[in-house]
Deep mutational scan, measured.
Amino acid sequence: VEVSPDIYQQVRDELKRASVSQAVFARVAFNRTQGLLSEILRKEEDPRTASQSLLVNLRAMQNFLNLPEVERDRIYQ
């Protein structure tokens, strides 16, 4: 799965849209901590040159964001 270069903005938009914390998003989207998500968003590494471990996390976030909005909102509950 190709990771979109605007994945970082997509995540920020989703945090605002759903009014969820980084901690909640990190847990449900890719089963990691708020600290890691914060670092990923701060660095904004180009997905095309990202490490394998970062790509795994970015893909998981993208797959989560590809779910229908209704389903994502249900998962946040």
Score class of each variant (00 low, 15 high):
R17V: 02
E45S: 08
G35W: 13
Q22N: 09
K43W: 06
E39L: 10
A26S: 14
L58S: 01
R59D: 06
L65A: 01
N63K: 13
R74A: 11
S4D: 14
E69F: 07
S4V: 08
L41E: 02
V28K: 03
N57C: 12
V1D: 05
E69L: 11
E45A: 08
Q9L: 09
V56I: 15
I40A: 03
R72K: 08
A29G: 06
A60Q: 11
R27S: 12
R17N: 02
R74Y: 06
S38M: 09
L58C: 02
L15A: 04
D46E: 11
A29Q: 01
E14K: 02
L36T: 13
L67T: 08
Q77F: 11
R27F: 05
E14M: 00
N31I: 06
Q34C: 07
Y76S: 01
Q52L: 09
Q34A: 12
R48C: 11
P47K: 00
S21M: 03
A60G: 10
L41M: 15
A23S: 12
Q62W: 05
D46S: 10
K43P: 01
R42K: 11
D13S: 15
S38P: 04
Q52E: 10
R48M: 10
V28F: 04
Q77W: 03
R72G: 00
R27I: 05
Q52R: 14
P5N: 08
D73Q: 04
V1I: 09
V70T: 10
N63R: 13
Y8S: 01
A60D: 12
V1C: 06
I75G: 09
F64P: 01
L15R: 03
F25E: 02
Q9C: 08
R72Y: 01
A18M: 14
S21G: 07
V11R: 00
R59L: 12
Q34T: 10
A23V: 11
Q52C: 07
L67R: 14
Y76C: 02
L37A: 03
Q9I: 15
Q34P: 07
R59I: 07
F30S: 04
P5Q: 11
L54E: 09
R42W: 07
R27N: 08
S21F: 00
E39A: 12
Q52I: 14
R32T: 09
L15G: 00
S38V: 09
L15D: 00
R74L: 09
V1E: 13
A29F: 11
V3L: 13
D6Q: 10
R74I: 08
V1G: 06
V28C: 13
S51I: 03
F64I: 05
E71L: 05
V70L: 12
L67N: 09
E2C: 15
K43V: 10
R74V: 10
S51Y: 04
R32V: 06
L54Q: 08
D73G: 04
I75D: 14
S51D: 11
G35M: 14
V24L: 10
F25Q: 01
Q77E: 14
V28S: 12
S19Y: 10
E44D: 05
P68W: 00
E39V: 04
L55N: 04
I40S: 03
S53A: 13
E2G: 11
Y76I: 03
R17W: 01
L65P: 00
Q10H: 07
L36C: 14
D46K: 05
V56W: 09
Q22M: 07
E39F: 13
N63L: 07
L15V: 15
D6L: 08
Q52P: 13
P5G: 08
Q9Y: 13
I40W: 02
T49I: 09
N57A: 08
F64R: 02
L55R: 10
I7L: 10
S4W: 09
L36Q: 11
K16D: 14
F64W: 13
L58Y: 01
A18V: 10
V20A: 04
Q62G: 06
Q52D: 11
L37I: 10
Q77M: 15
K16I: 13
E44V: 06
Y8G: 00
R59C: 10
A60E: 14
F30P: 00
L54F: 04
Q22T: 07
R32Y: 05
Q34H: 09
R27E: 14
L41R: 01
G35E: 15
Q22W: 11
S19A: 15
V70C: 11
M61R: 00
A26L: 04
L15W: 02
A60P: 05
Y76T: 01
V28T: 11
A60V: 07
L55A: 09
V70Y: 13
A26P: 00
T33I: 02
E39N: 08
L67G: 03
L65V: 06
Q34I: 06
A50F: 02
T49D: 10
S21W: 01
N66M: 08
F64V: 04
A50Y: 03
E14D: 01
Q34G: 11
R27H: 13
E39C: 15
R17Q: 00
S51L: 03
L37P: 02
S4F: 15
Y8C: 03
D46F: 04
S51K: 11
I75L: 12
P68T: 07
L55G: 07
V20Q: 05
R42Q: 14
T33M: 05
L67K: 14
L41P: 02
S21Q: 04
L41W: 00
V28N: 04
M61Y: 02
V11H: 00
R74S: 10
Q22F: 10
S51N: 11
D46H: 15
V20L: 11
E2K: 15
V24R: 03
D73T: 06
Q22C: 05
E14A: 01
R48G: 12
V70F: 13
S53C: 11
N63F: 05
E69K: 10
P5I: 07
E2H: 14
R74T: 12
I40M: 15
E69M: 09
L15C: 15
F30N: 05
N57D: 11
A60L: 10
L36W: 09
E69S: 09
V3R: 04
L36S: 12
L36F: 04
N63M: 13
I40L: 10
L36M: 14
L15S: 01
P68Y: 03
N63I: 15
L41C: 03
P5A: 15
S38Y: 14
P68L: 04
E44N: 11
L15Q: 04
D73H: 04
V3F: 06
L41I: 06
L41F: 03
Q9F: 08
Q77R: 12
V70M: 08
L37Y: 03
K43Q: 10
Q77A: 14
S38A: 14
D73A: 04
K16S: 08
N66P: 00
N63E: 13
D46Q: 06
A29Y: 00
I40N: 02
D46M: 04
G35H: 14
G35R: 11
S4T: 09
L15P: 02
D73L: 04
T33Y: 07
Q22V: 10
Q52Y: 07
L54S: 10
V24F: 07
T49K: 09
E44P: 04
E45W: 06
Q22D: 10
Q34W: 06
S21D: 08
E44Y: 02
D13I: 15
R42L: 11
S51R: 09
M61I: 13
V11P: 01
E44F: 01
S4I: 13
T49N: 11
R48V: 11
A50R: 02
Y8W: 04
M61G: 00
E2D: 11
R72D: 00
Q77N: 12
S19E: 14
L37N: 04
Y76H: 02
T49R: 11
I7E: 00
N63S: 11
L58D: 01
L65R: 00
R74K: 09
E69C: 10
V3E: 05
Y76P: 00
Q34F: 08
L67F: 06
M61T: 06
R72F: 00
R72I: 01
D46L: 05
A29D: 02
A50K: 01
K16P: 00
E39K: 08
D6C: 06
Q34M: 07
V20C: 11
F25D: 00
V11D: 02
S4H: 10
E39M: 05
